[in-house]
Design a protein around this nucleic acid. Structure first.
Lengths: 96, 96
DNA sequence: AGCTGGTTTATCTTTCTCGGTAAAATAGTG
DNA sequence: CACTATTTTACCGAGAAAGATAAACCAGCT
């Protein structure tokens, strides 16, 4: 029960990342050189197995010449739509 | 020459984070309870001193009921606007 | 001044990222 | 089938994130 917010997030960002890289016909090694991030690390991120740091995502986004938010795109969880926590539900009111 | 992409990124996200939290009149401790992230950790993130992981930002965004991209908002670097790297310029062509 | 609430800083431990390297998979091609 | 390119997985070591806690600041207020 380590609690992973949404296992989709990482996989989602990874998917998007891979798509963007494919668009520019870059291999992991090429992107690795561009970003300074090793190809294995990039692979883990793209496959949603690694929880990258913000600056790491920023480096990748910069190399791909897209804004960082392009990686998160329309991940409009907004929490009120009820995407997660069916039984969790923080309530705000409970803490105020 | 470890090169920190843009020292602004973290400070920027932190600033945005703090604004969102203020909007809901939440203290660091309250947000800490909501997110499961300790108040000191939140403080470091908000002051731009910590390079948070993606899921960490996602937890905070969820607690604040905003999409994750709201934290990165209009950080449209896009590299063509020329916000950063005056002397960096990876060239893509060099690696292809 | 003393207090109180909020934020920051510091220290410590655990966990994880990240680069490096090397070894397996997984294509794709002759 | 062999050969090559690309990706994935596995291990290692260094560094950093994140939780906990405690202490230091910094308001505001009686």
């Amino acid at each position: 029960m380590t609690m992973e917010i949404e296992p989709n997030l990482l996989a989602d960002v990874g998917r998007r990342l891979r798509a963007l890289r494919a668009d520019q016909d870059l291999t992991l090694e090429q992107l690795a050189r561009l970003t300074g991030i090793s190809a294995p690390a990039l692979s883990l991120i793209e496959t949603g197995k690694r929880d990258a740091r913000l600056t790491t995502l920023a480096k990748i986004a910069a190399a791909l010449r897209v804004p960082v938010m392009a990686l998160l795109a329309d991940h409009a969880d907004d929490a009120s739509t009820g995407d997660d926590a069916p039984a969790e539900g923080y309530d705000l009111g409970d803490y105020l």
